[in-house]
Design a protein around this nucleic acid. Structure first.
Lengths: 276, 276
DNA sequence: CCTCGCAAG
DNA sequence: CTTGAGAGG
């Protein structure tokens, strides 16, 4: 339960999405020190790359409610959600194999009380880790299948009128502004026309919103930089980590930024403040 | 060809044996910086763990003659001999499978000239990497088989009257003085009675000499420390790296020490000076 | 607990 | 180039 401020009737919710590229690695790089002072209320992680028996005290800071959704394969994939507010429920997976066995989707439901006299309402924050297609044709085929399956659920959520924030590593660049080297990557996985069209479908057809772009419509900012070469130093990046939100969240986006002052991973935290 | 000093009629030869636990790793830890100033004439390495295509300039300092004897399996086993003096010949392997396919034995022959009027003579310096038996019964069985095969060659060399220095990681402790924790390791591979008896056979029956003990009969010094726990810091070690020499070298040992001031590997260099 | 090769990103 | 598993030590 999240109680709104009784005076203002409003409350700010800071939600963070980050592909940690190994929660153990990110921990060693000071991720949890940053998190403590980040002001985050809810954090969606991807590529946690650890199983429950490897999820230690050092990965479980005091004052958080935490949920881990792990892959069957050790050291691979996985998502997690950490929250300052208690979950009212948690759901792992979406009922298709590659998603469920690889821990690529987990969703937390929260209940907001508007005050003692109100019924309140619920919303969902999900952590999604879309497969990479960059290692070859088979990987791309698996990614495409995942996109297809995923679209069914995005459509259903709209039909149900669900209030949802789907944070994640989508492994897809949306538009030219979202990547440094647009021309050179036209044929690379993550920039393929049918992948970008999939995002168009979410936004233009289903009405979802790229929350970062609500607040920053024109800035060229990235959320991922290759580890090869000097990509980070030269800011040769891609924006592939998003908060995809149902339409009811559009007018609630108060602030959005990508945190680049420290580096915990090859991805940067995408931080968005929402007015509840 | 090694020319003796024409005035004194003698020459010192510094021979080093070291298990480098990955020549690339040892290189990163400054092994070649040390080597340059070590005064070594001949260096026998074990566990080089690289194949010819991975043997780069950084592993080939100027002023040395070098020979690599690699395992078929990448990143595994292998021996090498580096020398300030040219080899007159090189021989890899000893004709049994585990030795030859894993690059566990290589021998360099040197020719010494006593002066313009003499015929001179030859001697052999070999680098031997005996298998570890510590990973289980099968590994121990392979080690035991290796010991058996190896004994044939040690015997033949004596029958041939060969002048030889067999440097190497023998993975066997000889006596109580050669290990810190004698009692606790009685049942562990490397300290087993039949392994130690094998060394007795070399020394007592065949007449080989543990060159280090010629110069240091009573010191408790080790050549290997486990990476686990605080073994190095607490000097909890084993002496398992030897110069096993034919009897003609006994009276030529001038100095012997194990170099512990720097750490290039889990093994330390065993340095012995011989009078030619 | 280290080194290396490997799969995956 | 990086993470992590796994073999081997």
């Amino acid at each position: 339960m999240i109680a709104k401020d009784l005076n203002t009737g409003a409350k700010m919710l800071r939600v963070v999405s980050i592909n940690v590229n190994g929660l153990r690695s990110a921990t060693a790089k000071g991720f949890f020190q940053w998190l403590e002072n980040s002001g985050a209320d809810i954090v969606c992680m991807q590529e946690t790359r650890l199983q429950p028996h490897q999820w230690l005290e050092e990965h479980k800071p005091a004052g958080w409610h935490m949920h881990l959704c792990h892959a069957e394969k050790p050291g691979y994939s996985g998502t997690a959600i950490y929250s300052r507010h208690p979950f009212s429920s948690i759901n792992n997976g979406l009922g298709f194999d590659i998603c469920d066995t690889q821990g690529r989707f987990t969703a937390a439901e929260f209940y907001i009380s508007d005050g003692p006299d109100s019924e309140g309402k619920t919303f969902v924050v999900a952590s999604l880790y879309l497969p990479s297609g960059s290692s070859g044709d088979e990987a791309q085929a698996r990614k495409d299948l995942f996109l297809q399956e995923m679209l069914v659920h995005f459509r259903q959520w709209r039909e149900q009128g669900k209030s949802i924030i789907v944070c994640g590593d989508y492994n897809i660049v949306h538009k030219e502004i979202d990547i440094k080297n647009w021309k050179g990557n036209q044929k690379n996985s993550g920039v393929l026309p049918h992948e970008r069209a999939w995002l168009d479908t979410l936004y233009d057809e289903l009405g979802y919103v790229d929350a970062f772009r609500v607040h920053r419509p024109d800035t060229q900012e990235y959320s991922w930089w290759s580890n090869r070469g000097q990509a980070w130093a030269n800011n040769v990046g891609w924006r592939i980590d998003y908060h995809v939100v149902s339409p009811d969240w559009r007018n609630r986006v108060a602030n959005a930024f990508i945190y680049r002052d420290e580096r915990f991973s090859d991805h940067a935290p995408v931080v968005i403040d929402y007015v509840l």
